[in-house]
C-alpha cells in the first residue's frame, strides 16, 4: 500500500456536547479520489469540517502525512498542505476571479505562484477570459471552478470538497467530475462528500458509506456500485450499468 495522505482513526466529533459522527474511520492514499456518500444528515459534512478544524473533535485521531492534526487549527492546516472548499458561499463574490485565486496563496505561498496559476488555468480554461470579472457574477459551475482553483493555489497535497456538484445541472456535473479526475492526476489527493452518489462512485478510487454518523460500508467505487445492499439503500436501486 502506498504512502498515506490522511488517516482518520476512530473519530468522534460534533457541535457543542453533541457528537454527530462517532468512531469513524477513513483513509486517503496518495493520488486518490476518496468519496463519502450517505443519506442526508449522516454526518458527511461534519466529517469534513472536523478534519478541517471547523467543529469540535472529541476523541480519536486524525493523521495527515504521518503527523497528528487532531488539535490543529484551520489556519495551521493550510500551510501544512490541506485546502478545503465549502459547499456553498465558496467564492468571495466582490473579488475578481483572479483575486479569488490570489487569496488562495496568502496563507501558504506556493513556490512559483505564476506556474501554479498557469497550471490551474490549464485545468479550468473557462476561467481564462473571466479573470477580471467579479466571482459573484459567474454561473454556478464557474464559481465551483474558482472555488476549487482557489483551494489549489497553495499547492496542497489534499483538498476537501463538500458537495462540489450541489445545485449544478446534470450536464455540468460531468464536467466537474472530469475536472476532478484531472486534478487528481496532477498529483492532488481529494476527499469529497457527494450527494450524487452514483456518478461520484464512478470516479472514486475508494469510498465510504456513512449512515447515522457511523461507517456502514466501504470499498472501491466499483465494488460499492456492484454491492446490492448499497445499491438498494443508497443509490436508488436498479442494476449496475
Amino acid at each position: 500500500m502506498s504512502y498515506k495522505i490522511l488517516d482518520v482513526q476512530n473519530l468522534t466529533a460534533g457541535y457543542g456536547k453533541l457528537p454527530i459522527i462517532e468512531d469513524m474511520h477513513a483513509k486517503v492514499d496518495d493520488g486518490q479520489i476518496v468519496v463519502i456518500v450517505g443519506p442526508n444528515g449522516a454526518g458527511k459534512s461534519t466529517l469534513l469540517k472536523s478534519i478541517f478544524g471547523l467543529n469540535k473533535r472529541m476523541s480519536g485521531d486524525i493523521v495527515f502525512e504521518s503527523r497528528s492534526i487532531f488539535d490543529a487549527k484551520t489556519s495551521e492546516l493550510v500551510p501544512m498542505g490541506i485546502s478545503a472548499v465549502p459547499q456553498s458561499h465558496n467564492v468571495f463574490p466582490t473579488l475578481t476571479v483572479e483575486e479569488n485565486l490570489d487569496v488562495g496563496t496568502f496563507a501558504a505561498p506556493p513556490k512559483d505562484k505564476a506556474a501554479t496559476k498557469a497550471k490551474i488555468l490549464t485545468l479550468f480554461p473557462d476561467l481564462k477570459d473571466k479573470l477580471r470579472q467579479q466571482a459573484g457574477e459567474l454561473s454556478g459551475g464557474q464559481r465551483q471552478m474558482v472555488a476549487v482553483g482557489r483551494a489549489l493555489m497553495s499547492d496542497p497535497h489534499l483538498i476537501l470538497l463538500d458537495e462540489p456538484t450541489a445545485g449544478l445541472s446534470p450536464a455540468y456535473l460531468e464536467v466537474i467530475f472530469d475536472l476532478l479526475l484531472q486534478v487528481r492526476d496532477s498529483g492532488v489527493s481529494i476527499l469529497m462528500v457527494e450527494q450524487n452518489a452514483k456518478q461520484a462512485l464512478r470516479i472514486a478510487d475508494y469510498a465510504y458509506v456513512l449512515v447515522n454518523g457511523k461507517n456502514a460500508y466501504e470499498g472501491t467505487g466499483a465494488e460499492l456500485l456492484k454491492n446490492d445492499e448499497v445499491r438498494k439503500s443508497f443509490l436508488g436501486g436498479g442494476a449496475p450499468k
Binding site: S75, A84, L95, A107
Partner: peptide
C-alpha cells in the same frame, strides 16, 4: 469583508 467564514477556511489570519 465579503465572507468571514470562507476567509477562515482559506486560512487567512
Amino acid at each position: 469583508s465579503d465572507d468571514p467564514a470562507l476567509a477562515s477556511v482559506a486560512g487567512l489570519d
